[in-house]
Amino acid sequence: MSTQEIIQQFEPKQHNLLHILHALQDAHPENYITEEALEAAAGHLGVTKSTVYGVARYYTMFSLKPRGKHIIRVCASPVCELLHVNDIIAALEEELSIKTGETTKDGLFTLELSECLGQCQEAPSMMINDKIFNNLTSARIREVIQSFKDEARK
């Protein structure tokens, strides 16, 4: 779908802005919202540019910079920290050869931290795109990352 087609699905009311931004970001292969898309959203809603920009910059799920195909979001809650999520993050950084906040050279992964994912019964946890991974260990990390890499190769 084109940017316009995505936007036109929504009634031109500002309360749809978050949904529009979600839809625009989800539709982009690099998981972000382009400036053109922001401008189109502002035009559709009849609001100023800063209105959409300010909203996009407020909510952490939105990115205005290109990201990887898969967004890894590691839960950084106190519970996960208590259960050594820092080791998991270190393992991910090593496995992906990037720091938190960066995207792998092949454009496959972006590593981010997240607020509590609400998976505390099986912490530590992370999400890759919209899928949850719990009871993480360094070994499990390697397994999961490998499976995404394998899939990409197919």
Binding site: V47, T48, S50, T51, Y53, G54, V55, R57, Y58
Partner: peptide
């Protein structure tokens, strides 16, 4: 009545 300004970040 112009609403040109906003905040970025938080």
């Amino acid at each position: 009545g112009k609403n040109v300004l906003s905040f970025t970040n938080r």
